[in-house]
């Protein structure tokens, strides 16, 4: 999956769950500070990402994803990793 496609899918997930229009989201948008996401919202976003990208994301890894860009980076790295296997 191309990075652009991963970005697009994550924007869709975040927009669906938080209700923020996609065009107001950027890679720099942070979940807690910018989107006021609570713990349930973050868990739901992570779960949707796991489902869409067919990967497991541990709670520790999820903790490190502060922004949409962090999520894109992490998921791309996992997808590249799984391709290599």
């Amino acid at each position: 999956m191309e990075r652009k496609e991963v970005e697009e899918k994550i924007y869709n997930i975040v927009s669906e769950i938080i209700g923020t229009p996609k065009d107001e989201l950027t890679l720099k948008t942070t979940f807690i500070h910018d989107l006021c996401a609570d713990s349930l919202t973050i868990v739901d976003i992570v779960s949707k990402c796991e489902d869409v990208f067919q990967i497991n994301i541990s709670d520790e890894q999820a903790e490190n994803m502060k922004s949409i860009g962090d999520a894109v980076d992490y998921i791309c790295s996992r997808l590249v990793g799984s391709k290599k296997k």
Partner: peptide, 13 residues
């Protein structure tokens, strides 16, 4: 369809 891990965190509230 997808197993218990996919159940939404918002399901109970």
């Amino acid at each position: 369809q997808k197993g218990p891990k996919r159940v939404s965190a918002f399901s109970v509230p």
